[in-house]
């Protein structure tokens, strides 16, 4: 499948529709691609992503599940072993905690632990995060990518644009390994160019979302939007920000990070998730190990606070990264303060 030039396409699609279209195309291509989860039939899943798919594909390919996340993940694995290519939708990423045994103890290890005898081509679709998805509270707002990134054998993908969402989900569905595919709830209505021609974005490849020379900012998920806005605001001040979206969080494209850091000599890493044990800690360390001699300033992180996500909006806003925190961090690293 060739990579169409998104610059010459003008079709706009929302992040949500891009995800639906990726599933629809793959389900049409291969009837072994099955989608299941809570309320995915007529209701279209928790956020309406799978609307109209049950009407098109029926019970054979789209199936409502009882509220049994652990078993849903077990079913995905067993079905995968008999030739299916399951897409399992968790209504909220938070609920994947109920299934973590089957994902991390079983699916992630199944190829390795059994000496390469079998494999688990599964996609776990996980809507996560908060921000403009407000006041959902401590059980419906978390950012849990680091849990899964820490488990060898899982791939973890997190698109920040509709274009990436479609191309990466198609790659995830075709991948013979288990993939945790994270969708940001607050991005579902964001629109972007999504070409009509089919395309696929290989997993493990970062994308330079903005070229710049002053500093490297690595941001993913919803944080990409904040980073892009911050970059525009800083341009008049003479700070030219390069923005990298890793898109795949494991395995991540460290070479792309290193190349940029060797050019800009400065780094800010951004994650919505709480700070401690987050993916940016790993990236910062890798950069330090590989690019220490190129760095002109300490590596700085902007991250969520280490607390559960609170309910009241005044509290919520305190907890999350925002554009002004990002701008302050960038200026700090560029010694602009």
């Amino acid at each position: 499948m060739s990579m169409p030039d998104k610059d010459i396409s003008t079709r706009k699609l929302s992040y949500l529709m891009a995800i639906r279209e990726a599933m629809q195309e793959e389900m049409r291509r291969d009837k072994n691609v099955i989608l299941f989860g809570e309320d995915v039939e007529r209701h279209g899943g928790g956020f309406g992503v799978s609307k109209e798919l049950w009407e098109e594909f029926g019970d054979q390919q789209v199936r409502n599940m009882p509220i049994s996340e652990n078993c849903m993940a077990g079913l995905a694995l067993g079905a995968a072993m008999t030739g299916c290519r399951p897409i399992l939708e968790f209504m909220f990423m938070d609920f994947s905690a109920l299934a973590i045994d089957q994902i991390c103890n079983e699916a992630a290890k199944i190829h390795y632990m059994y000496g390469g005898q079998t494999n688990a081509p599964i996609v776990y679709r996980c809507p996560q995060g908060g921000l403009s998805y407000k006041s959902a509270g401590a059980h419906h707002s978390q950012s849990l990518e680091a849990w899964y990134v820490h488990v060898p054998g899982l791939k973890v993908v997190f698109p920040g644009t509709p274009y990436d969402a479609k191309g990466l989900l198609k790659a995830a569905i075709c991948d013979p390994n288990p993939v945790v595919f994270i969708e940001h709830k607050a991005l579902y209505n964001n629109e972007g160019i999504v070409p009509e021609d089919e395309y696929i974005i290989p997993l493990g490849k970062a994308d330079v979302k903005r070229t710049g020379s002053s500093i490297t900012v690595i941001a993913y998920g919803y944080m990409l939007q904040f980073a892009l806005e911050a970059a525009e605001k800083l341009m008049p001040e003479g700070i030219d920000v390069e923005i990298i979206d890793p898109r795949t969080l494991n395995p991540f494209d460290e070479e792309c990070f290193f190349e940029s850091v060797r050019k800009t000599h400065r780094v800010v890493l951004i994650q919505e998730a709480c700070r401690t044990g987050g993916v940016t800690a790993e990236w910062g360390m890798r950069i330090e190990e590989e690019c220490f001699d190129w760095l002109d300033a300490p590596i700085v992180r902007v991250a969520g606070e280490d607390v559960p996500i609170p309910y009241a909006q005044s509290l919520e806003e305190k907890v999350w990264p925002n554009i002004s925190k990002i701008i302050a961090a960038i200026k700090n690293v560029c010694y602009f303060n």
Partner: peptide
């Protein structure tokens, strides 16, 4: 769960 999934498959 895996056995049940294989049966579903």
């Amino acid at each position: 769960g895996l056995a049940t999934g294989a049966a579903w498959g």
